[in-house]
Design a protein around this nucleic acid. Sequence first.
DNA 1: AAGCTTCTATGAAAATTCTGGTTATTGAAG
DNA 2: CTTCAATAACCAGAATTTTCATAGAAGCTT
Lengths: 225, 225
Amino acid sequence: MKILVIEDEKLLADSLKALLEGKGFAVEVAYDGETGAEYAELGIYDLLILDVMMPGMDGYQVARQVRAKRCTTSILMLTAKSAVEDRICGLNAGADYYLTKPFDTRELLACINALLRRQGKQVDELVFGNTSLDLDTCTLLVCGGKSVRLSAREFDVMRFLLQAQDRILSKEMILARVWGYDSNAVENHVEVYVGFLRKKLKAIGSNVRIEAVRRLGYRLEVEQA
Amino acid sequence: MKILVIEDEKLLADSLKALLEGKGFAVEVAYDGETGAEYAELGIYDLLILDVMMPGMDGYQVARQVRAKRCTTSILMLTAKSAVEDRICGLNAGADYYLTKPFDTRELLACINALLRRQGKQVDELVFGNTSLDLDTCTLLVCGGKSVRLSAREFDVMRFLLQAQDRILSKEMILARVWGYDSNAVENHVEVYVGFLRKKLKAIGSNVRIEAVRRLGYRLEVEQA
DNA sequence: AAGCTTCTATGAAAATTCTGGTTATTGAAG
DNA sequence: CTTCAATAACCAGAATTTTCATAGAAGCTT
């Protein structure tokens, strides 16, 4: 995670850098608006922390220019100006969050997390071996390879297996979970669907195998080459 | 643009609703946390406005539950609690922005815009494949080609599909979003309107197909030549 | 009436379940 | 260490059920 701090007060800028680096971020600092905007437009940062009041180009101008260049990096505006008008101005200039100084460092970190969480590839994916299950599209895909759609029932079974990772799931458990506790489906249904899934896993070249564990059930396993 | 307000003070809730509807948003209100969470989990809203202090389930709990259900709707938290700890708690619970009462309506609107802008949903045109939807004229058009007018209902369905891009939308979700969660429309209505849209997409030579995903719903797909 | 929306009905398609038979694995007895 | 029942797993295809697409009629609204 790469953060650019644009702040003319060296003291604050440097202490921010230290704080954030302590939390594991890669931090760069620009001490004026012009260079800040220039760096920001590279589009290589995950977040900009932007002071409003700076000599030369102020924070609003930087935000507007960055946005005008279609750069969508999240912007956290940080300033001593606490008037409502200033906050509105900042948000309208393209900021994603507005925090007034003096700020609590824990609050700053919570904001940063919220912003990164929002843009972060909210990976709605379950993974095992080289294979993952996309929850949005019900698609099973091999890392950098083929993919295949699952039917609703196949998807439910696969998801349950992936959630269990390499633990063993009994057929009773799978039945109860996928078909429902009170359905009258029988264990053979599980066997049939495991069969379907094995076929599809093989078709896309997955290294995940559904291993049958006698008397106990099934579990996922990564095939050794 | 659909907003859900979760707020137990009827007066505030209703004036928020009026304010936002005046700005062209479709607004629904839940007067307690439980029903609010239930509605929110439908995933049909573009934004949740969430009060923290409510009897029963409070705002933090609602946010956490909604996030636990993998619902990524933006959350704007609104509350009288102004302590730093509360703001941190809200953000960590999954909120995207934290605003303290009393708030300036212009600031609220600026926040909402910032959040919606971030979702990339404020654009005047939704695009998929070679086809786009003009929000001003309710017109579906193929890049450099023909165009066709959509009826209001067709438009709502198409817009929802385009917002979801290639994610699968269940008929239930489309019903809730387009016809309203409390309408007595049935799933066949969705099927019928998908039929209409397919006809129009074909008529203008679009490469966008509305694929039916059995048991799960519909999704957009670009037709391979 | 025209156009949009809703409703109903029907055939088609696909997913799911069921069935019966074949193959594999286990554990105990020889 | 074999052999052999017994049990479990697997498979292919048929039967069933569910879901989907479409046409056309009916109802509204303007």
